[in-house]
């Protein structure tokens, strides 16, 4: 039932990700006490997760075909994203946000075909 095959690309990817993640979590123990992070660096880190996720979402929603910007309301990805923002902002519920905006996206895609 499952395809157990794993290709070399995936092996490198998983191994690389595992290595850098563990290194980041462990490195402070052997080198502890030798230096302190600058305050600016610590504050900057707090922005990283939302900023990286946004930089992935925005092109996939506004440029669904690749290089051309599609800001028309006939773009189902844009409609779905607006729905997700609305539902998420009001409900603060992750699961509801995902389900409702996926339905809106699907309906928009059918309706606009």
């Amino acid at each position: 039932m499952f395809d157990m095959g794993i290709n070399l690309y995936e092996v490198y990817m998983v191994a690389g990700m595992a290595l850098v993640t563990f290194a980041i979590r462990y490195i402070m123990f052997p080198i502890s006490g030798r230096f302190r992070f600058p305050d600016l660096f610590e504050r900057g880190l707090r922005y990283v997760p939302p900023v990286v996720l946004t930089a992935i979402i925005v092109p996939s929603v506004l440029m669904p075909e690749g290089q051309t910007l599609n800001l028309k309301l006939s773009n189902p990805y844009l409609i779905g994203a607006l729905a997700a923002c609305g539902v998420g902002w009001v409900s603060k519920n992750l699961l509801l946000t995902i389900v409702v905006s996926m339905v809106v996206f699907q309906v928009a895609q059918w309706g606009l075909q």
Binding site: P49, A84, C85, S101, M102
Partner: peptide, 20 residues
């Protein structure tokens, strides 16, 4: 076929909003 094309942007939007 049920809007999963959009599952990722939807999930990420749901994760980002509480940061704002």
């Amino acid at each position: 076929e049920w809007g999963l094309d959009f599952a990722m942007p939807a999930t990420f939007i749901g994760i980002v909003l509480p940061y704002l």
